[in-house]
Design a protein around this nucleic acid. Structure first.
Length: 249
DNA sequence: AATGGCTCCAACCGCGAATGG
DNA sequence: GCCATTCGCGGTTGGAGCCAT
């Protein structure tokens, strides 16, 4: 069956978001809470499709988001989770408070993948690369990748600070990564994080860096609250007044 | 200083899942 | 059960910024 476009193509803006658009979306979301995304652009006065609004909010504007590169512990957790879950970025992100699937996916593709390859670990199977059978059809570049494994020194190419900070990782680190991957099922912490119990346990805190939404013309009260209270407050806002009662569960 | 190549990440696209009538 | 609609996910891309020459 023919699928309709997610939004009316005419008059819908695309590309990078402006500060004004961010302001409108944040104001709307903080006032009404998460709602039926299709209605958001119209109600918020944005010329964007709902999909774009959802993406912007979840990946960039949400107050509980952490900023900056993943730290060592988070990176390790992503590797462990990827080993058991594969490319299910949303599932992985669900286990890392304050991180988005897009962010983790990007970090995986730009940093962790290279790091694992350099350590001699296949980023897909999480098995040591030298164990894998080299087929004659392999490209020269992939063959080089395999030849260059277990050479932790000097970067792949002039890389950014993110990867260069980790590129002088010692062989001990590589070894510990391999061990953790091999024993993740035995690690109680990893086992716990991999379990559904983790997701159901909302006692863990969002150590997110609180953004200052005063730039958006908002009062500072939301940033003074803990990071989840603002959303609960939004639900208590008179949604009926906006005919949105059926949108918020 | 110019420029060409590379890296990174925000945003888009298309598909499948979920949901409701 | 069928169909239409909406949502969410994962893969991909475009362009800004960085770096080496």
């Amino acid at each position: 069956m023919g699928r309709q476009p997610c939004c009316d193509k005419l008059g819908v803006k695309k590309g990078p978001w402006t500060a004004e658009e961010d302001k409108k979306l944040v104001n709307f979301m903080l006032t009404h809470g998460q709602c039926c995304w299709r209605a958001v652009p119209k109600l918020a006065g944005l010329r964007r499709c709902g999909k774009s609004c959802r993406l912007r909010w979840t990946n960039y504007l949400r107050p509980d988001l952490k900023r900056g590169l993943l730290n060592e512990a988070e990176e390790q957790l992503v590797i462990d989770l990827h080993a058991s879950l594969g490319n299910r970025w949303s599932k992985i992100a669900a286990r890392l408070p304050g991180r988005t699937d897009n962010e983790i996916k990007n970090h995986w593709n730009t940093h962790i993948k290279k790091k694992l390859i350099k350590m001699g670990i296949d980023p897909i199977t999480h098995e040591p690369l030298h164990k894998q059978v080299t087929t004659p059809q392999e490209t020269p570049s992939s063959a080089n990748d395999q030849q260059n494994v277990n050479i932790p020194e000097h970067g792949v190419s002039g890389n950014d600070n993110g990867s260069s900070a980790t590129e002088n990782s010692s062989s001990n680190e590589a070894q510990s990564l391999i061990e953790v991957n091999a024993n993740s099922d035995d690690d109680p912490l990893v086992s716990y994080i991999l379990s559904d119990t983790f997701l159901e346990d909302w006692s863990w805190n969002f150590p997110a860096v609180e953004d200052n939404y005063s730039d958006f013309g908002l009062s500072s009260t939301s940033s003074e609250d803990n990071s989840s209270a603002w959303f609960m407050d939004c639900k208590d806002f008179g949604v009926e007044d906006f005919e949105l009662g059926n949108c918020i569960n």
